[in-house]
């Protein structure tokens, strides 16, 4: 008995445990090799360019002056203010596209593998369940970050080229130098990424519980939509601070000057709670799942 334990302990590192770096790299390669991932990343990268071209054309024809119910707001500020374009695009994408991407990646990570029948192989493979989940979660998080960064880069480039402007005109009417403006853009991208991670974590928990990827996407988007509806009901105001989407609307605080940090910090805490809940549920399901 004792010998057996010792034997296993000795053998384990050499025979069965693959280096973590290699696992993560192979997972990333797996995700990025899926055609739909590439299509989605490409489309997301195009969003800021399309928005930039649209705003540039609208500005030329003077259409932005006549603000509609939602048309005014940030769009009119983006004109001649290129550094705001990535922020504007991310705000648009945060309403549906980015949550969809997070949900889709999470759906593919576990439920998709289960549907293909490949998850069974992974579960019986000599990789710990927690380790497997960590690798999957890393894949989702890394590609989400990649998607947001892609949008940020194309947005910044398209903004500076198409709309121009030196520095960043904040929503408060002050002008930040280019470096500080770029800092705000990166901060915004980081906060957006974190919020998508939080939703993706919840989606990953669902993904561990089903073998139908569509269910995962439906539940995650359902969560977003139901949160929005609950948010709109005045009688449920007490619930608002606990809803996952509550902090999404506060994200544009980043382009206020001086930047009010209260809501942003609270948003990170709220997202963190969902992140922990999501990963914990996913872990407990993975551990109890049959091989």
């Amino acid at each position: 008995m004792t010998t057996a334990v010792v034997d296993r302990a000795v053998q384990r590192p050499t025979a069965t445990r693959a280096p973590l770096g290699r696992l993560l790299r192979s997972e990333l390669r797996l995700v990025l090799r899926r055609p739909r991932t590439l299509v989605v990343l490409g489309l997301l990268a195009l969003v800021p360019v399309v928005a930039g071209v649209g705003i540039a054309i609208a500005a030329d024809s003077g259409a932005l002056g006549a603000e509609g119910p939602n048309g005014g707001g940030m769009a009119s500020l983006v004109e001649g203010n290129g550094l705001l374009l990535p922020v504007f695009s991310l705000v648009i994408a945060m309403t549906m596209l980015l949550p969809l991407v997070g949900a889709m990646l999470s759906a593919d990570a576990l439920a998709g593998e289960a549907a293909n029948g490949t998850l069974r192989g992974l579960l019986v493979a000599p990789v710990g369940r927690a380790r497997l989940l960590a690798v999957k979660a890393f894949g989702v998080a890394a590609v989400t970050l990649l998607a947001v960064l892609l949008m940020t880069v194309t947005g910044t480039v398209a903004g500076v080229v198409l709309l121009g402007g030196d520095g960043m005109l904040t929503i408060s009417g002050t002008t930040l130098p280019f470096g500080a403006g770029l800092g705000r853009v990166l901060l915004f991208a980081a906060l957006v990424t974190f919020q998508v991670w939080a939703l993706a974590a919840v989606a990953l928990a669902v993904s561990a519980m089903t073998e139908h990827p569509l269910v995962v996407v439906a539940v995650a988007l359902g969560l977003v939509i139901v949160s929005g509806v609950l948010n709109a009901i005045p009688a449920l105001d007490w619930l608002t601070p606990a809803l996952i989407t509550t902090s999404w609307g506060d994200l544009p605080d980043v382009i206020s000057d001086p930047m009010p940090t209260g809501n942003l910090v609270e948003g990170v805490l709220r997202g963190g709670c969902y992140l922990v809940i999501g990963y914990s549920l996913a872990l407990s399901r993975m551990l109890t799942r049959d091989g």
Binding site: A242, L269, C273, Y274, L275, V276, I277, Y279, L283
Partner: peptide, 15 residues
């Protein structure tokens, strides 16, 4: 995992 779930829920309640 159970502790993590609880901690997350408690965090949300505190917020």
């Amino acid at each position: 995992a159970a502790a993590g779930t609880t901690a997350g829920v408690v965090g949300l309640v505190l917020i």
